[in-house]
């Protein structure tokens, strides 16, 4: 009886599982086929295990895409963590006149269509002489990660008891000392969330990279995928192995930090 009652639930759960998971299975399974296998049996799952596509992807050179993405995402996220934490400290724990407007100014960035900033940032980057370098991405990446980061960090900081700060102040700690020695160490979980959330986001970022980079050697992974798309337009298994390889790092990050990612998303967005 109990089994019968749960049966429809299992059906729904499995349908959703197929809907969300099947494209990944299809991608990985197709990447392991030869071209011949693919045309013979395009839909069979894991019917062959041929890794030659992966070697040909590696032969085309992918390391610079990985390196570019890694450098620019990590650099941007580390800077964001630091300056967002700095800004969140007075915003969440001090009373001053422009506190609320300043906070709103920062978090309203979450609503902003990137397109509204695209042309000026393009011109600005050119006039700074950093167009088509990784430096070009750093500024916009930091700026557009600030809203969600400040939002997450201020929420977290509000919950740190005031008495800790007062004790440090009595011991003669400077405001920066308090921030560095008292607040920052307590922020670690929230900072991890900020790191992971922004890292995933920037690793996949497309439009700024599209506008601000042009030469192949400076491209990040999303642009690199486009290169492979052109290269492999007839070799579908080849393209699938490129897609799999390029998605792998983020999946690895996810499986090692599942709870943090999820918490960050929920914490950062429930209040919109």
């Amino acid at each position: 009886m109990a089994v019968m009652k749960k049966f429809p639930l299992y059906i729904i759960a499995l349908l959703l599982l197929v809907f969300t998971g099947y494209p990944f299975l299809y991608m990985i399974s197709t990447s392991l086929k030869t071209q011949g296998d693919f045309f013979e049996k395009p839909f069979s799952l894991f019917s062959s295990f041929n890794f030659s596509n992966y070697t040909s992807v590696f032969e085309m050179g992918i390391s610079h895409y990985f390196l570019n993405s890694l450098i620019v995402s990590v650099a941007a996220v580390v800077i964001v963590m630091f300056i967002a934490a700095l800004a969140s400290y007075p915003l969440s724990r001090m009373k001053f006149k422009f506190n609320r407007p300043l906070f709103l100014l920062f978090i309203s960035g979450m609503m902003l269509p990137i397109h509204a900033t695209l042309i000026p940032i393009f011109k600005l980057t050119q006039s700074m002489g950093i167009y088509d370098t990784l430096w070009a991405l750093l500024g916009p990446y930091i700026a557009f990660s600030l809203p969600i980061s400040i939002f997450i960090l201020t929420q977290f900081m509000q919950e740190i008891p005031k008495s800790l700060e007062e004790a440090a102040e009595m011991d003669g700690c400077t405001p920066f000392g308090i921030f560095w020695r008292v607040i920052l160490p307590m922020l670690t979980p929230a900072l991890m969330t900020v790191f992971i959330y922004n890292f995933i986001h920037l690793w996949n970022e497309f439009i700024f990279a599209l506008v601000l980079l042009s030469s192949p050697e400076n491209r990040t992974i999303p642009l690199g995928l486009q290169d492979f798309y052109g290269e492999f337009s007839v070799n579908i298994p080849g393209l699938m192995s490129a897609l799999t390889l390029f998605s792998l790092p983020i999946l690895v990050v996810y499986f090692f930090s599942q709870e943090k990612v999820v918490k960050g998303l929920a914490g950062g967005s429930v209040k919109g």
């Binding site: 920062f106 509204a116 900033t117 940032i121 500024g139 930091i142 600030l146």
Partner: peptide, 28 residues
């Protein structure tokens, strides 16, 4: 002193934000 502290803490984020988010909207 407080105002100074607040400014120093907020300045880095605010500068980047003004340059890459606020200014571009007006420029657009």
């Amino acid at each position: 002193k407080n105002v100074m502290t607040i400014c120093l803490f907020v300045a880095p984020a605010l500068l980047v934000y003004l340059l890459y988010v606020v200014y571009p909207i007006f420029a657009t």
